[in-house]
Amino acid sequence: MNSSGSGEWLECFLADVDIRRLEDVSVRISPGRKLTVLDLLKAWHGHVLRFEAEVGLPDSGRTVWGVWDFIAALAIRSCLSRGIKKVDPDSLEMLKRALGDVDSKFMKFTENDEFEIALRLDGGGRSDDEWWWGRIPRVGPIRREADQIKSAFPD
Rank of each mutant, 00 (worst) to 15 (best):
residue 56 G to H: 06
residue 99 L to N: 02
residue 105 K to H: 04
residue 13 F to K: 04
residue 48 V to D: 09
residue 47 H to A: 06
residue 128 D to S: 05
residue 13 F to Y: 10
residue 87 V to E: 01
residue 4 S to C: 03
residue 140 G to P: 13
residue 3 S to Q: 02
residue 155 D to W: 14
residue 130 E to W: 11
residue 93 E to M: 12
residue 108 K to C: 09
residue 87 V to G: 03
residue 30 S to H: 07
residue 88 D to G: 07
residue 9 W to P: 00
residue 133 W to M: 08
residue 48 V to S: 11
residue 70 F to V: 04
residue 113 D to Q: 13
residue 81 S to K: 11
residue 45 H to Y: 09
residue 144 R to Q: 14
residue 138 R to E: 15
residue 12 C to K: 15
residue 25 V to M: 03
residue 132 W to Y: 12
residue 16 D to M: 10
residue 9 W to N: 02
residue 98 A to H: 01
residue 110 T to L: 09
residue 116 E to D: 14
residue 56 G to I: 09
residue 135 R to S: 14
residue 24 D to E: 15
residue 122 D to I: 01
residue 153 F to N: 07
residue 116 E to P: 00
residue 154 P to Q: 07
residue 97 R to T: 04
residue 87 V to M: 04
residue 53 A to F: 02
residue 54 E to K: 00
residue 21 R to K: 15
residue 68 W to F: 11
residue 20 R to V: 15
residue 40 L to T: 05
residue 131 W to L: 06
residue 71 I to R: 03
residue 72 A to S: 10
residue 87 V to C: 10
residue 66 G to R: 02
residue 2 N to R: 03
residue 54 E to W: 00
residue 86 K to D: 05
residue 54 E to V: 01
residue 105 K to M: 08
residue 19 I to K: 13
residue 32 G to H: 08
residue 33 R to G: 05
residue 111 E to N: 07
residue 154 P to N: 11
residue 109 F to A: 07
residue 43 A to Q: 02
residue 23 E to Y: 05
residue 21 R to N: 15
residue 52 E to I: 01
residue 80 L to M: 00
residue 34 K to E: 15
residue 89 P to K: 15
residue 147 D to M: 15
residue 21 R to I: 13
residue 57 L to M: 11
residue 5 G to M: 10
residue 152 A to G: 08
residue 35 L to E: 14
residue 30 S to C: 07
residue 119 L to S: 02
residue 100 G to S: 08
residue 146 A to H: 11
residue 53 A to N: 03
residue 12 C to H: 14
residue 28 R to W: 08
residue 129 D to H: 05
residue 79 C to K: 05
residue 18 D to R: 10
residue 130 E to K: 07
residue 30 S to K: 14
residue 62 R to W: 14
residue 33 R to E: 12
residue 85 K to P: 00
residue 64 V to S: 03
residue 16 D to C: 06
residue 16 D to V: 08
residue 27 V to L: 03
residue 106 F to W: 06
residue 8 E to I: 04
residue 68 W to T: 04
residue 58 P to L: 03
residue 8 E to C: 01
residue 31 P to W: 13
residue 78 S to Q: 09
residue 22 L to A: 01
residue 142 I to G: 07
residue 49 L to T: 08
residue 155 D to T: 13
residue 149 I to V: 05
residue 31 P to S: 11
residue 47 H to Q: 03
residue 72 A to D: 11
residue 40 L to C: 04
residue 16 D to R: 13
residue 133 W to A: 06
residue 145 E to A: 08
residue 78 S to F: 03
residue 32 G to Y: 11
residue 91 S to W: 11
residue 15 A to S: 14
residue 41 L to H: 06
residue 131 W to H: 06
residue 49 L to R: 07
residue 140 G to D: 14
residue 133 W to C: 02
residue 111 E to W: 00
residue 106 F to Q: 06
